[in-house]
């Protein structure tokens, strides 16, 4: 298996705090890779650097064999690298269908004059809405959905662009156990359809059930990686979590 994503010596500081420090790791194509680590270990910053939301101070990011360091998030999204956010960022005043269409990765300038949601657009959303059980909410305003359903919507929406790699930032946080299980199912079925995942998550049982390999981050760099049982047995990981 080749590496779909590779990060080489990435560094990012904010003032005196170095959030990501000489971080190198790789995500192999076809895996569901987990990125875990204590609070403040730099997981979300690393996501921001990989997806182009922030520019690294040093280091390089390679996606699908190409150097994509410094590219904006929109270009990366269209190239097949999409992400969700910790706080389920959807457009609250748009309907569920509009949220899906907005994320479809159109050639916007050519389509500006086409209808806001054309029949073709709507048809494109149908399969995903059904898969995520959002069909009944299709024409509701996203703000009216529960937090958990907004998370499902955000996940479903980034799949509209048929990405190769999806970064999920805490998909199981703040949602009920039933929904956690559904998140897991959605990741599994999309994984089976060929999508590679990189998942930041604090719910370790979720991670251990779903992900392989697991990468552990501490103080902005990976300290351990391997299959779930190996990582769990690694004393450096216990140290990082329990404060050695």
């Amino acid at each position: 298996m080749s590496d779909l994503l590779r990060v080489d010596g990435l560094r990012k500081s904010y003032g005196g705090v170095t959030a990501v420090d000489d971080c190198s790791l790789a995500v192999a194509e076809g895996t569901v890779t987990a990125l875990i680590g204590p609070n403040g270990s730099g997981k979300t910053t690393l996501f921001d650097l990989i997806t182009g939301y922030r520019k690294p101070d040093a280091g390089r990011v390679f996606f699908a064999g190409q150097d994509v360091t410094g590219r904006g998030p929109g270009r990366l999204y269209r190239a097949g690298l999409s992400r969700t956010f910790q706080q389920a960022r959807v457009f609250p005043q748009l309907t569920v269908v509009e949220n899906m269409v907005a994320a479809a990765g159109h050639r916007w300038w050519r389509q500006l004059a086409t209808p806001r949601v054309s029949a073709a657009d709507r048809a494109r959303t149908e399969a995903l809405l059904a898969e995520f059980d959002l069909t009944g909410d299709a024409d509701r305003i996203a703000a009216e959905l529960s937090y958990g359903r907004r998370k499902l919507l955000e996940f479903a929406a980034v799949l509209m662009s048929t990405p190769r790699l999806v970064l999920l930032d805490e998909p199981a946080a703040g949602v009920n156990p039933v929904l956690v299980e559904r998140m897991e199912q959605h990741v599994r079925s999309r994984h089976a359809a060929g999508v590679t995942f990189l998942i930041v998550e604090h719910d370790l049982s979720f991670v251990m059930r779903l992900c392989d390999p697991v990468i552990v981050l501490d103080a902005g760099r990976p300290i351990s990686q391997g299959d779930p049982s190996a990582v769990r047995a690694d004393p450096r990981v216990l140290d990082a979590y329990l404060g050695g």
């Binding site: 182009g52 904006g72 929109g74 457009f91 269409v101 907005a102 994320a103 990765g105 662009s161």
Partner: peptide, 18 residues
Amino acid sequence: LALATVRGDEDKARGLGI
């Protein structure tokens, strides 16, 4: 639709290639 995403969450919209 593009303007509505700007109004709703411009950074997220940029990240979606809008």
